[in-house]
Design a binder for these strands. Structure first.
Length: 495
RNA sequence: GGCGAUAUCGUCUAAGGGUUAGGACGUGGCCCUCUCAAGGCCAAAAUCCGGGUUCGAAUCCCGGUAUCGCUACCA
């Protein structure tokens, strides 16, 4: 089969939950590989498990991918709409003798830590057989088989795994792998309800979609020999496998709801920047080979390679994610940040009618001033609220800490006058006015500065005062000073 | 239980026979300072254990242990 030489990879989530961190990382690696190589990324929805499948979750997964900036070139393709393909493949394997019909009762899975054996306690109530015993249907004679078929017994199709030899493949991350065929059970290809199992559908689709590299979680490593067996039985050459290590929770167990936020959607809501999240997500399990960590997406794409993928599971490191976010919040060109800040303000209802919405240059200036101390996007509407609206309150702790001095009302009144009289409104003029007043009153400038800050933005946590004054503008500063004076020294209202 | 993979500071990782085992997050301290951040400097912090090969092992080999994965008519 002639190939164009350009790799084709796929991300194949099953809609049994939201897009979680692990899946997102797998998707990201596929995407990075495809973009690095100039190849194609396909999106395939593996929805063959009617029991657990929830179609309404598909849109959420796509949304998560879009938020992450992971775009795909083909799909989404749904396995549930390709059922005849799998049946046909199963029939073909049956006909060639590579598979056999199995009439056994389907054994329900009893959970990962179901008791394996009983302790010989003497109770011989129906022993739970959880171990897959070798299936006798494998050796059914033709007459036995047709008898069962005549009876209309439900039938599954199992792969006839060779009893001898070994099956091997080369993993781009884990290296050469060999497994004794005797260790592999006669696994099911087609369930008695006619739906394919993962092992079958994944091979049929990867073949049909001409996938060249299968990049997926290392939890699939152990099952890969089964798939190699299917490829061989179908007369096909397996693609390149590249298994990537798993991301675990802080307790070293697989990441799950138990660990709090694990869906990428929750990180979007929390106010993480997609690119920061991407940068963070690229690093566990992959390294560019040197010490660089702050890597913009274009650079990650340029440097990504399967040879940089590690073989050890990594623990999800939330503090580092936050660090990445603060880095992006600070280092990105302001212009890139504006759309995010705007969306945030809209979300908080602070955008309409605001100066930010009318005056782009001012908005840029404000965002640039605020961003060094933002950690999440929500900070633009949280502590920085006063930059975008007059409707803000005064932080209780800030009042208690900085509004204690009894002469403050008089001094701030005097400050307002001095500021009003300034011929020009700029950083140095404001500073000179305030420091001059402090000197005249015989108080430390810091006292006035901190009190003024609380008065004009309601918070102790804010950018440097004189920069803040410039951005707010004289009118607002004076209004807010005058508004705050009556409140000074009064205890903050309870509740 | 069986089979497999993996093992470097608390976390993510670099070093792939010779380095004072490097960087980053986090932690502590100092500087800057107008609050809070950011930034700068400094510090504590690791080669899972035991054998072997070698002049020399984090690195190669063997054993143990731990962790994770698979062992489903889940994916």
């Amino acid at each position: 089969m002639p190939s164009s030489g350009k790799p084709r990879v796929r991300f194949a989530p099953s809609p049994t939950g939201y897009l979680h961190v692990g899946g997102a990382r797998t998707a990201l690696f596929n995407w990075l590989f495809a973009r690095h190589e100039g190849g194609m990324l396909l999106l395939r929805i593996e929805d063959t498990d009617v029991e657990r499948n929830r179609p309404e979750l598909v849109e959420g997964i796509l949304e998560g991918l879009r938020w992450l900036g992971i775009d795909w070139d083909e799909g989404p393709l749904f396995q549930s709409r390709r059922l005849p393909l799998y049946r046909e493949a199963a029939e073909r394997l049956l006909a060639s003798g590579a598979a056999f019909a199995c009439y056994c009762k389907a054994a329900a899975y009893s959970g990962a830590d179901a008791p394996e054996e009983q302790e010989g306690e003497g109770d011989d109530e129906e022993p739970k057989v959880t171990r897959a015993l070798p299936c006798l249907c494998r050796d059914l004679s033709d007459t036995e088989r047709s008898a069962r078929q005549r009876e209309g017994m439900p039938r599954a199709i199992r792969f006839r795994v060779p009893r001898t030899d070994r099956t091997g493949f080369e993993d781009a991350v884990f290296g050469p792998r060999q497994v004794e065929n005797a260790e592999i059970e006669d696994f099911v290809l087609l369930r008695s309800n006619g739906l394919p199992t993962y092992q079958l559908s994944v091979v049929v689709d990867d073949l049909d979609m001409r996938i060249t590299h299968i990049i997926r979680g290392a939890d699939h490593l152990s099952n890969t020999p089964k798939q190699v067996l299917i490829y061989q039985a179908l007369g096909a050459r397996p693609p390149v496998f590249a298994h990537v290590p798993l991301i675990l929770g802080p307790d070293r167990t697989r990441l799950s709801k138990r660990h709090g936020a694990t869906s990428v959607g929750s990180y979007a809501e929390e106010g993480f920047l997609p690119e920061a999240f991407r940068n963070f997500l690229a690093l566990p399990g992959w390294s560019p080979g040197d010490d660089s960590e702050f890597l913009r997406t274009a650079e990650i794409i340029q440097r990504f390679s399967l040879s940089g993928v590690s073989r050890t599971n990594a623990i999800f490191d939330r503090p580092k994610l936050e660090w990445f976010n603060t880095q992006y919040l600070q280092k990105l060109p302001v212009e890139e940040l504006l759309p995010y800040a705007e969306a945030e303000l809209k979300r908080a209802g602070l955008w309409e009618g605001s100066r930010a919405s009318r005056d782009r240059a001012w908005f840029r200036q404000a965002v640039d001033l605020i961003r060094p101390r933002t950690r999440l996007l929500g900070d633009f509407t949280d502590w920085a609220r006063a930059f975008f609206t007059d409707g803000f309150g005064y932080d209780t702790e800030a009042r208690e800490k900085f509004w204690k001095q009894e002469h403050l009302p008089a001094m701030l009144g005097a400050l307002a006058e001095a500021l009003a009289a300034l011929p020009e409104w700029n950083h140095d003029a404001c500073e000179a006015a305030l420091r001059g007043l402090a000197a005249a009153e015989g108080v430390k400038a810091g006292l006035l500065i901190n009190a003024t800050r609380v008065a004009i933005v309601g918070r102790a946590v804010a950018p440097p005062l004189f920069d803040t004054m410039v951005v707010l503008g004289r009118e607002r500063v004076l209004d807010r000073l005058r508004r705050a004076i009556p409140l000074l020294g009064n205890p903050p209202p309870e509740g």
